[in-house]
Design a protein around this nucleic acid. Structure first.
Lengths: 192, 192
DNA sequence: GAAAAATATGGTCAAATGACTACGTTTTTT
DNA sequence: AAAAAACGTAGTCATTTGACCATATTTTTC
């Protein structure tokens, strides 16, 4: 499983062979079935996780049981609850598999070691953080200002591949609209 | 103006006198009047800015002219458009003063120098980034899942001080609801 | 392969929301 | 101090949205 991960790393920066092996050696592989949880609300996020294959979702739940999805993490992305991981405090969100997935996990202490040892990893990590910030800002702006139809169109435009792999109810939970509204939009677009 | 800034820095980490002076020496002070822009959509965000006094808002505008506020930056916080600043590309949001404000600004190249020179500043900066991520995640979750009244109550609970300084229309623009809905909620809460 | 679960759609109805407008009050500007 | 701008509230009305429910279809599970 680490081979795919190593080629991902290679494609992002010029890691040498020993760095690659060193990073991989501390990873713990895991297979997740549909709806298996990587992290449950209230638990402490002890690992940084790379998705080798499949897709996870990060979501919050409300008292009535409804899900609200913060982001999807498909293959070749990283995932964690940053707040819980950084401070090692209980998480307020969940991470679960959307589909059969393979992941690699590093404990915080191991990953911190790697960051200190390997400057290239540190800088990659900073890039990813900066992308995550930007991503969540864009999403906030969209949540605040876009109409349901705009959100849906933006999602199709930006993530056509995910679109095909996700059930509509998750897309609705991601866009912050009801499933009913989503099917209405789709219906309207068919007849235009 | 730099004295307040230096005591802010002191309160967050044990900077020595020469570091403080070094950091301050590269800052450019600026006074902003109400509605003065620090950054306009399309411009490149060339500075990292610390708010000494007053309050700024970071917001996007839509084609119809409506404003949607991503966050408020009161005194003793930092502000910038991270994407535009990091990559030095045109910004997609605006930053303007809510009230009379005093700020300190560093160019990216100067600040990068400081980060490299002063490890303590680097680690403070990482802390702030992590807080910003967490903040924007919480906000996204709230935007996706909370009702207008919940959003309003959360805002009063979390930011009672800002509440008093902001006109309602900005609070509405921040919560992603119409001014009408906001006054309705306030009206309902009065009669309960 | 059969049973069970999840999915996508749509009808109906009540409630929530926003656009427009108006008006009296407060704040800011000059 | 006077004029102008911004502010907070509220009435009305059309539209959007969600809750609840039913159903046909597809996918998953065992």
């Amino acid at each position: 499983m680490t081979i795919k991960f190593e080629s991902y790393l290679q494609s992002h920066a010029n890691f040498n062979e020993s760095d690659l092996k060193r990073i991989s050696s501390l990873a713990e592989p895991r297979v997740l079935h549909r709806n298996d949880f990587l992290l449950m609300e209230g638990e402490i996020c002890r690992h940084k996780t790379f998705i080798v294959k499949g897709m996870l979702r990060v979501f919050g739940t409300r008292t009535d049981g409804s899900e609200h999805i913060l982001l999807f993490s498909p293959e070749h992305t990283w995932t964690l609850d940053a707040e819980s991981y950084d401070k090692q405090i209980p998480s307020r969100c969940n991470i679960a598999a959307v589909e059969e997935s393979e992941v690699l996990m590093w404990t915080k202490s191991d990953f911190d070691k790697l960051l200190a040892e390997i400057p290239l990893l540190k800088s990659l990590s900073e890039q990813l953080i900066s992308r995550a910030i930007h991503n969540s800002r864009q999403r906030l702006l969209s949540a605040l200002s876009a109409t349901p139809e705009e959100k849906y169109n933006d999602f199709i435009r930006d993530s056509p591949a995910l679109m095909k792999r996700l059930p509509l109810r998750m897309i609705a939970a991601y866009l912050g609209i009801s499933l009913k509204t989503l099917t209405r939009i789709r219906h309207a677009q068919l007849h235009r």
